[in-house]
Design a protein around this nucleic acid. Sequence first.
DNA 1: ATGGTCGGGAACCGA
Length: 256
Amino acid sequence: MKLATFNVNGIAARLPRILEWLEEAKPDVVGLQEIKCEDERFPRAALEDLGWHVETHGQKGFNGVALLSRLPLEDVSRGLPGDPDDAQARYIEARVGGLRFANLYLPNGNPQPGPKFAYKLAWMARLEAHAAALLATEAPAILAGDWNVCPTDADVARPDVMAEDALCRPESRAAFRRIAAQGWTEAIRARFPSETLYSFWDYQAGAWAKNWGLRIDHLLLSPAAADRMVDAGIDRDVRAREKASDHVPVWVELAA
DNA sequence: ATGGTCGGGAACCGA
């Protein structure tokens, strides 16, 4: 079973690229982030016609997450628990193929310090609590998405330039480590302990051409899921295509 | 070179 995360940066502009990648990579479950549209405007029919089950949690203009799956998506929940006043569409979760798949778009947090950074850290505290609740069930689970955190300087092409950025701040990294330390396995680092790997390259300043990337898209596996990991990867080549997102897909393959 | 580039949606915000 192949599960993936892909920040598409706008579903309307990216649909042809997404369909192309789905055909090539043949994932079973995909979490999309930054669909940037309301539920009614998501191209549900185009995907359902190709056999995908689709669930969305959209928002006009910004944010928005969606789930695509070959198998039915059951017990879908929208929104990260812990703050009923949080109106931003950043979280959707479902049961699929016997595991719990959580798809998250963690707040960017820039500029920091400031209210956006405070929102990021508060959101991570809520995620920490919810992740612990998921682990407590002992069912296989995956926390997939755009985490907007570079776990270490090894995940940053230019750590000096990024030192004060919300994606690299010690507070962001500490919150990420606290969640991982609950017992989650970060799939890419488990598979590639010391390789230089990125999942995002900014559109600006020729970042892709210079390989000025960041690794911010992650798949965290519960112990029961990690026991089944047979492979993981980053589809780096997708970034070079016409009309590419600034992120590329990250995936994990679990034994049936 | 204190900018640069995208997406969404129609001026500017978010990243």
